[in-house]
């Protein structure tokens, strides 16, 4: 089953009880990619963006995600700030790695739904420190994975994996992920820019279990070059509530929550 991406960074939303011994770097990341997360998910997201001067801005979003036959559908409703309220954003993504996502945005001032290009994965999401690619579901085969070492972090044993993109045009030269051995949760991830300088560090501050699924409910992305960060907090999470397919349509984008 295709994993539900949710708004939280992928590569770190995982669960399972498979032991790490004798696994290659690719196999570890594949386990991350394939972990089950339920058929649908609903939740509220609060995104706090702080710049280098300490000024904070807060964005609130309600989102619905559903696994479908060939992939996944997601719709997000922006609740605040007021100037973006009632804006909605819908993505249809596909298991077929060669097929691009389809994306639409509804702008209440224009009163119409516009198709937008999914080719801007390097753009930052709503002015945060997360790019659209950071929030997406990068296929394990897009990178070459190498186990660097095993290391204890926050009292948990992790496997440290370096992932180097096969496409040299990719926005990061490489990433390094700390994956917890027994639960397959990524506790930390480093992103290196095209000059191989450390750009951003993603850390997990909180996690919760919902039914059999572990969801990371608070993560922080710090841009060490600009000295700014974004915190994403996920609340009111509900799994497998049976979200109907017609939730992910133009009708619902316009109608709102």
């Amino acid at each position: 089953m295709k994993t539900i991406k949710s708004i939280l960074p992928m590569g770190i939303l995982l669960s399972g009880m498979i032991f790490a011994q004798d696994l290659s770097g690719l196999e570890v990341i594949q386990k991350v990619y394939d972990r089950p997360t339920g058929n649908d998910m609903t939740g509220n997201l609060i995104m706090t963006i702080e710049n280098s001067r300490g000024n904070q801005r807060v964005r609130k979003i309600k989102q619905f995600v559903k696994t479908v036959k060939n992939g996944e559908k997601k719709i997000m409703y922006f609740l605040s700030p007021a100037d973006v309220k009632n804006t909605s954003f819908m993505t249809w993504s596909y298991d077929d790695a060669s097929k691009s996502d389809d994306q639409w945005i509804y702008l209440p001032a224009l009163k119409k739904v516009k198709r937008i290009s999914s080719d801007s994965k390097g753009d930052y999401f709503m002015g945060s420190d997360f790019t659209y690619d950071d929030l997406g579901d990068r296929h394990p085969l897009d990178d070459t994975h190498t186990i660097l070492r095993e290391e204890a972090i926050n009292g948990k044993e992790t496997i440290v994996i370096e992932s180097v993109p096969k496409n040299e045009e990719y926005m990061y030269a490489r990433t390094v992920t700390w994956v917890v051995k027994d639960s397959w949760i990524g506790l930390k991830k480093e992103f290196y820019d095209e000059d191989d300088e450390l750009l951003k560090i993603l850390t997990v501050d909180d996690q919760q279990s919902f039914k059999d699924v572990i969801i990371l409910t608070k993560v922080k992305m710090k841009n060490v070059q600009r000295n700014q960060f974004t915190i994403m907090e996920f609340s009111d999470v509900q799994i497998d509530t049976g979200i109907p397919s017609n939730k992910f349509t133009e009708r619902m984008m316009k109608r709102g929550i």
């Binding site: 691009s100 389809d102 516009k114 198709r115 937008i116 290009s117 999914s118 080719d119």
Partner: peptide, 9 residues
């Protein structure tokens, strides 16, 4: 109509 073609709309 509206469609995506090679990264452009």
């Amino acid at each position: 109509f509206s469609s995506e073609l090679g990264g452009l709309i």
